[in-house]
């Protein structure tokens, strides 16, 4: 029996039309799928190629930097963690170190004619505030000072509790340096790490040699420009200006750096007799780890 004869049967006729219809519908779906794929490749996927190429390259660079950093990290983390625990967030307020520091700063301000010697420094030994596992002990000092003295004192307090150059930079500053290192010399991450983990006081005392060490690994104008921007960030500039001279040297010699973490809580300025001079009362919080039994 031939196909044509078979198709003369009504049931076969209907079945063949149904099969043909199903095939046609499936073909239509496949055609739509073809069109969708072509459109997606053209509109969506191809523009991603440039992004993926950049990210692939960046991923390789980052992998190299992570591997290099891993070799360097173990020693510095240990020593920084120890300093943080002993000096920055001690379990008891380091009153002697804080008073010694303010005494020295007071003398330095007096020597420059910016303030009278600090008359009164009072520290409370019971915490008055608690936050994030830390307890705050208030320290209040009273003095007469000029506008320059006030600026110097408050900018100095901002630096207290910072350990390294990296601590004085914002995350944006650090991201800028990371990006520069990726673009110019991924292996320079080691020099960058050494720069960022440099003790802030030692950097302030000799910024040139620290910066030169970093510049030897990165010579491009782009990185130089990023570094220059970073070096002009306010805290690092203040560190060089305020700790870079005799005061920094004395702090180093007497071993009263790093200092406990401080925040300015209250400032009261009353106009003094001489123009541009004020009677100042400053309350700062010394932050230490909360004692847990």
């Amino acid at each position: 029996m031939t196909l044509r004869v078979l198709l003369q049967r009504p049931i076969m006729l209907i079945a063949s039309f149904l099969c043909g219809g199903v095939c046609l519908v499936l073909s239509g779906m496949l055609l739509i799928e073809h069109a969708r794929v072509v459109r997606e490749v053209r509109d969506v996927s191809l523009p991603l190629v440039a992004q993926i190429t950049t990210l692939e390259t960046r991923s390789k660079v980052l992998k190299e930097q992570v591997d290099l950093s891993q070799l360097q990290s173990a020693v510095s983390v240990g020593s920084l963690g120890e300093k943080l625990e002993v000096f920055v967030f001690p379990s008891d307020p380091a009153v002697d170190r804080a008073v010694a520091f303010f005494d020295l700063v007071g003398d330095a301000l007096f020597a420059h004619g910016y303030a009278t010697p600090f008359e009164d420094i009072a520290v409370e030994t019971s915490p008055v505030a608690h936050e994030d596992g830390l307890a705050a002990f208030p320290l209040t000092l009273k003095t007469s000072l000029s506008t320059e003295g006030l600026e110097t004192l408050l900018r100095m307090v901002d630096l207290l509790g910072l350990l390294t150059v990296g601590d004085a930079l914002t995350s944006d500053d650090i991201a800028l340096l990371f990006l520069g290192s990726e673009e110019e010399n991924p292996a320079g991450i080691v020099a960058l790490e050494q720069f960022l983990s440099q003790d802030l006081l030692r950097y302030a005392l000799d910024p040139r040699s620290t910066e030169e060490q970093l510049r030897r690994s990165f010579v491009s104008p782009t990185f130089s420009s990023a570094l220059q921007t970073t070096l002009q960030s306010s805290l690092l500039r203040d560190a060089r200006r305020l700790l870079g001279g005799d005061l920094g040297q004395v702090l180093l010699e007497r071993n009263i750096w790093p200092q406990q973490f401080l925040t300015v809580e209250h400032v009261r300025l009353t106009q003094g007799q001489a123009p541009g001079w004020y009677a100042a009362e400053l309350t700062v919080f010394l932050w230490g780890r909360e004692y847990t039994e």
Binding site: L62, G81, D132, L163, S171, I174, F178, E193
Partner: peptide, 24 residues
């Protein structure tokens, strides 16, 4: 990897110290 690098190069970039600095 960026986070891993930051953790290695600036080890104190997060945690209690970083939060205290951010508040300050």
């Amino acid at each position: 990897m960026e986070q891993q690098r930051a953790a290695l190069v600036t080890p104190l970039h997060d945690g209690m110290y970083a939060r205290a600095k951010a508040r300050k």
